[in-house]
Computed example of a mutant assay.
Amino acid sequence: MSRDRVALGIALGYAADRLLGDPRRGHPVAGFGRVAAGLEQRIWGSSRSRGTAYEVVLVGGAVGAGLLLDRLPAATRVPVVAAVTWVVLGGRSLTKEAQSMSGLLVAEDLDGARLRVRNLVGRDPSALDADELARATVESVAENGADAVVAPLFWGAVAGLPGLVGYRAINTLDAMVGHRTPRHERFGWAAARVDDAANWLPARLTVLATAAATGSVDGARSVLATVRRDAGRHPSPNAGPVEAAFAAALGRSLGGSNSYAGVVEDRGRLGDGPPVTVADIAPASRLQTRIGLLSLGALLGARAVSRAALRRRRRARPGRPRPSSRR
Rank of each mutant, 00 (worst) to 15 (best):
D196M: 06
G301V: 10
R290G: 13
R229E: 11
A197D: 12
G240W: 11
Y260M: 03
P235Q: 09
S253P: 06
L299D: 06
D218G: 10
L254M: 02
G271P: 02
H234G: 07
L208Y: 04
V223I: 05
L287R: 11
D280C: 07
V278F: 02
A284W: 01
S285E: 12
A198Y: 09
G297S: 05
L224N: 01
V194N: 03
R233M: 07
L299W: 09
A225R: 12
G273D: 04
A279W: 08
S216I: 02
S257G: 08
D218A: 15
S222E: 12
R186A: 08
E243Y: 00
D280E: 08
G255Y: 06
G301T: 08
S236Y: 07
A231W: 03
A244L: 03
A220N: 00
D266V: 08
L270D: 00
A192G: 04
G292Y: 04
T277W: 01
L205H: 04
V194I: 14
L299I: 14
V242M: 00
L287A: 13
S285G: 13
V194W: 11
R267K: 14
N258V: 13
V278P: 01
R290F: 06
P274N: 06
G301Q: 15
T206H: 04
A212L: 11
W200M: 11
A298C: 10
V242G: 00
